[in-house]
Write a protein that binds this DNA or RNA. Structure first.
Length: 412
RNA sequence: CGGAGCGUGGUGUAACGGCUAACAUUCCUGUUUUGGGAACAGGCGACUCCGGGUUCGAAUCCCGGCGCUCCGACCA
């Protein structure tokens, strides 16, 4: 894309009502726009990045047998009463609304209920199992306090996967597969080193659930990290029993602040019982499906990347999720003409290039480029053209090299 | 939901209760410039969040609302 056509502009100052680093950088670079507290619109660069993150997650979900759907955000009161989660006393973050005829509706904050109900129409026999269903869907949560930029919003995209298994054993095996898939995802988006599988409260059907916690001061959870084993314990459940279960000693653990970028949960038969999701087994007996739910917030992942990987000059995107592969910067008129040829060539080959064809000075272009954080910067100027070359700079390491244009185009 | 702070051009800031609300930046015009947010000149842009009140006079003081941020509680 030609940068001259990009309607967003970078800014030197963030609005003063943004204190969190993620929102400050993402707003300054033109990725997001704040509409209300906890409600952000995605601008072209932000949407491209979000889509890349979604694609990484989708690939992993498909690899473990997930089938993608998209359920509705509008929910009828009846089904949530069945599971006992309609009452505001039980779930205090509902957004509720009404039809013209006064029928009450809710905006979904999760989808166990509607999906379980939906699956009762399709799952009858043990032969129909197991089934893994996931979606990328906008969730609404009426948070009493939105905070930390896009890290805790009231409207946000969520990837939620639900598993339907025949029994605990089958469920347990899939649960482990999801754990692996999640670790793949977080390492692929550049958060691997700082993300820890964390033991957290499991609810009534299993002792523990697992959170994926990324170390950052911007987080709101306190976890106890075992660096060597690459696991952690959420402060909420830290006690002697847990330490004993995991074979850890208290003094091996280090207290750290972290943000929960993912969470996986065994649900047992809580929802299948509520909605009578039963199947007939080999012996003709009726059994309740065993369920699990598995969430990742792509927006929170984006915010976490902004928090964790950025530097004093701006954002630093890993190649896997960057809005563009390359930032092509032309300095001067003749260089712009040559850069256009390079841009056209790369685009034909499917390389995603942001081409800074603006009539602006070098300093401004470099500053913008650093702020936006595309992994590779290609500079074309009279200086490089004198050697029939381009300059290649790595955003993360700052390493710079020159390469002949012909050679560069052959490689990309 | 409890506590604290803050609302002034698009953005960031300034202005003792007193002249035409100032500065920087962004944006527009022109000249000059062209490898790290250039320089000069000119210009556009604000009923000072909304509604009341006090006062000869309110951006400034008081009351109410709305909004935003932070701390805490909450986060199935």
């Amino acid at each position: 894309m030609k940068q001259s056509l990009l309607f967003t502009k970078t800014r030197k100052d963030a609005p003063k009502d943004e204190v969190s680093k993620n929102a400050e950088l993402l707003i300054r670079a033109g990725f997001i726009h704040k509409d209300m507290a906890g409600v952000y619109s995605l601008l072209p660069l932000g949407l491209k990045t979000m889509n890349r993150i979604v694609e990484v997650i989708r690939k992993e979900m498909n690899a473990i047998g997930g089938q993608e759907v998209e359920l509705t955000a509008l929910q009828s009161k009846e089904i949530w009463e069945k599971s006992g989660r309609w009452d505001d006393k039980t779930v205090d973050n509902w957004f509720k609304t009404k039809l013209k005829n006064d029928t009450e509706l809710g905006l979904a904050f999760t989808h166990e209920e509607p999906l379980t109900k939906l699956m009762t129409e399709y799952l009858r026999s043990f032969r129909d199992f197991p089934v893994y269903v996931y979606q990328f869907q906008t969730k609404f949560r009426n948070e009493t306090r939105a905070k930390s930029g896009i890290m805790r919003g009231r409207e946000f995209l969520m990837k939620d996967l639900y598993s339907f298994s025949r029994d605990e054993k089958e469920h347990g095996e899939f649960y482990e597969k999801v754990k692996e898939a999640y670790l793949n995802i977080f390492s692929e988006v550049g958060l691997g080193e700082k993300t820890f599988t964390t033991f957290a409260s499991g609810g009534s059907f299993s002792k523990y659930s697992h959170e994926f916690q990324t170390l950052t001061e911007a987080g709101e959870d306190m976890i106890y990290v075992h660096e060597a084993k690459k696991i952690a314990i959420n402060k909420e459940v830290l006690n002697d029993e847990v330490l004993n279960d995991l074979g850890l000693k208290r003094d091996e653990l280090v207290e750290k602040k972290a943000v929960e970028v993912g969470n996986i949960f065994s649900l047992g038969t809580r929802f299948s019982d509520a909605f009578d999701l039963k199947y007939v087994d080999e012996k003709g007996e009726k059994k309740s499906a065993v369920m699990g739910s598995y969430g990742i917030g792509p927006g929170r992942v984006m915010g976490t990347i902004a928090e964790v990987l950025s530097d004093e000059k701006g954002l630093v995107w890993p190649a896997s999720v960057a809005p563009f592969d390359m930032h092509l910067i032309a300095l001067g008129e003749s260089a712009t003409a040559k850069a256009l040829e390079i841009y056209t060539d790369l685009s034909k080959k499917g390389v995603e290039v942001l081409f800074d064809d603006r009539d602006a000075r070098a300093g401004e272009k470099f500053a913008d480029s650093d702020l936006i954080g595309i992994p590779t910067r290609i500079v074309v100027s009279d200086k490089t053209l004198a050697e029939e070359s381009v300059e290649i700079k790595d955003r993360k390491t700052g390493e710079t090299s020159m390469k002949k244009i012909s050679e560069f185009l052959n490689e990309n």
